[in-house]
Simulated scan of single mutants.
Amino acid sequence: MIRFNLTCEKDHVFDSWFASGAAYDALKAAGHVACPVCGSTAVEKALMAPAVAVSRKEEAPLRGADTPVEQAIAALKKQIEENSEYVGMNFAAEARRIHQGDAPERAIHGETRLEEAKKLMEEGVPVAPLPFLPARKTN
């Protein structure tokens, strides 16, 4: 089986599965390949990226924390979660309060929008992005 990205004369883009490239050619020549949107049989193959299968051996290092970088990130995450308070979406407000002396100084981590993080940096609040999602967002 092979999947082709297809386009019709009206620029509708769709995909379809065929038994082989030759099967596509035969069906197209017989007028049996039609656009599902407009019904046109003036259909051509569209540019598509090839699907490359990865062997299990090549795929394994990408799962879990098998690579040194993944192990380092996992260790960093554990250390941050054990030694700081998760403040969730209140991160920006709490970081400002700590910076201004309105809240007790302590290590915190949480979430904020990129624009808000930039504002914190412009204000001189020491913040840094973390290379992982909070535990509550992982499945």
Rank of each mutant, 00 (worst) to 15 (best):
A65M: 10
M121W: 05
H109A: 02
Q79D: 13
A135H: 08
M121A: 13
A93S: 13
A26K: 14
R3W: 03
E115S: 15
K78N: 05
E82M: 09
G88E: 00
A92G: 06
K78T: 12
A49Q: 10
A34L: 10
A29T: 14
F14G: 11
V52C: 04
T112L: 07
V54R: 12
Q71P: 05
E111S: 10
S84G: 10
E82P: 12
R56P: 15
R97H: 05
E94Q: 14
A93D: 09
L76M: 11
Y24E: 00
M1D: 07
A53C: 12
Q79H: 14
D25F: 05
A26Y: 06
P104Q: 00
T138D: 04
D15C: 08
C38R: 03
C38N: 00
P61I: 11
K137T: 14
L62K: 09
A46Y: 02
Q100M: 13
D11C: 15
N5S: 09
D15F: 01
A117D: 01
I2W: 01
T41F: 01
E70W: 12
A95F: 04
E123W: 07
P61R: 07
D66H: 14
K77E: 00
P68N: 00
V33I: 09
P36L: 03
S40M: 06
K119S: 08
S55F: 02
G124M: 02
A19S: 15
F91E: 03
T41Y: 01
A34Y: 04
R106T: 04
G39N: 02
L76R: 09
P104S: 03
K57Q: 08
S16E: 06
V37F: 08
A65C: 12
G110W: 01
A74S: 11
N5M: 06
L120D: 03
G64C: 07
S16C: 12
I73C: 09
R3Y: 05
A51P: 12
L27A: 06
M89Q: 11
E115C: 14
Q79W: 10
R56K: 13
A93C: 11
A117Q: 01
P68S: 01
K28C: 06
F14T: 14
K137D: 04
K10N: 10
A53V: 12
T112D: 04
I2F: 06
W17Y: 02
A51M: 12
S40W: 00
A29F: 07
I98R: 09
V87D: 00
V33P: 05
T7L: 10
V37D: 02
E59G: 15
Y86F: 07
V43R: 02
I108V: 10
S84K: 09
V125S: 04
K118R: 08
D25A: 14
H12G: 09
E94S: 14
G64P: 07
P129R: 08
A51E: 09
P104A: 06
R56F: 07
F132K: 10
E122T: 15
G110C: 06
A107H: 11
L47E: 06
R56H: 09
P61S: 05
V43F: 02
